[in-house]
């Protein structure tokens, strides 16, 4: 708060004195190296990608390259895979983020209790975060093979005898279960981030609120609904925004587990673009899909920021 106050104070002065100007310059100069690096690895490639989407350009025939206007987008609009991957991307991203947020909230509430070895459990919950995504994917590949641990456990629980599932159900190679399985793996990998953020938000809620609510005879649920949730709203929004964007763009897990198959059942827009670009060499087409993703990310960000402003107030 005080930082923003002092931040605005010099700007209101009619004339910039030399000292202020010097501090401005220092601020810019300190920021400059990072900005140059980010321009080189993020912003310029992003614009380059937009330009490439108007070109016909094959990775395998680098000589022939030409401007084709909106052709790539026209092909894309006619591609039946576009609509399919569009909805599957949302299924993947929102399914993962919803589960991660629920699990993150539940574990944050648990770890905020006065439990034994609290520090130990708070560290433990971060384990999935440390495992590299590509390796976590392989780990889940192992768990969900037809003879994997999951099927063994389900059989032990008697689900096979009840006829609910097949004894050797291949989770990842059946189009009906491939996406839910990937969402499950992604949830495991991603929920600790939510736990950490939610736990920090929980700890910053003043204890008096709960005491006051208790005196007023509020139930646990009422305290959660009327104190915890509203206080955490900004954190919940920002975390789910970042989670949605990261998941929407993530490829590692799907690349390793299914590469978009079987029968395109786990193909997301990002995977679709990657396959087109580096699998088939259709750089122009892949860039056009990339631009579609970019536009979607912009829309999500704007919607979330609008929501954030309302919650903050």
């Amino acid at each position: 708060m005080s930082a923003t106050m002092t931040a605005r104070a010099p700007a209101r002065r009619p004339m910039l004195d030399r000292r202020t100007l010097k501090r401005w310059m220092a601020g810019y100069l300190f920021l400059l190296p990072a900005m140059i690096c980010l321009a080189v690895v993020s912003f310029v490639p992003m614009f380059q990608g937009i330009v490439t989407s108007f070109e016909n350009f094959s990775l395998f025939r680098p000589g022939q390259r030409g401007f084709v206007g909106l052709d790539q987008y026209r092909y894309l609009a006619e591609d039946p895979l576009l609509a399919r991957t569009f909805w599957q991307s949302w299924y993947f991203a929102l399914g993962s983020v919803a589960l991660q947020a629920i699990l993150g909230m539940a574990s944050a509430l648990l770890l905020n209790q006065n439990i034994w070895f609290r520090g130990f459990f708070r560290g433990l919950v971060l384990i999935p975060w440390v495992v590299p995504g590509a390796l976590a994917a392989m780990m889940f590949g192992l768990l969900f093979t037809s003879t994997g641990l999951v099927n063994t456990l389900l059989a032990d629980l008697g689900l096979v005898d009840l006829g609910l599932i097949n004894a050797a159900h291949p989770w990842l190679s059946d189009p009906r279960t491939s996406m839910p399985t990937i969402i499950m793996a992604n949830t495991w990998k991603g929920f600790p981030f939510f736990t950490v953020m939610f736990l920090a938000a929980l700890q910053s809620i003043p204890k008096d609120y709960y005491e006051a609510a208790m005196i007023d005879g509020a139930s646990n649920w009422q305290s959660f609904r009327h104190i915890t949730l509203p206080s955490m709203a900004p954190t919940i929004l920002i975390t789910t925004l970042l989670g949605t964007i990261w998941t929407f763009n993530s490829i590692d897990l799907i690349y390793i587990l299914t590469s978009g198959g079987p029968y395109y059942s786990t193909m997301t827009l990002a995977m679709f673009s990657y396959n087109q670009g580096f699998g088939r060499g259709n750089i122009g087409y892949a860039s056009a899909i990339g631009v579609v993703i970019l536009a979607l990310m912009a829309i999500i960000t704007i919607v979330y920021l609008a929501a954030y402003r309302r919650v903050e107030r």
Binding site: P45, T52, W246, A286, L294, A298
Partner: peptide, 14 residues
């Protein structure tokens, strides 16, 4: 904002 840029949009130019 760099967190919102899809890797897939930058990986091809890179």
């Amino acid at each position: 904002l760099t967190q919102m840029i899809p890797v897939i949009a930058t990986i091809i130019p890179l």
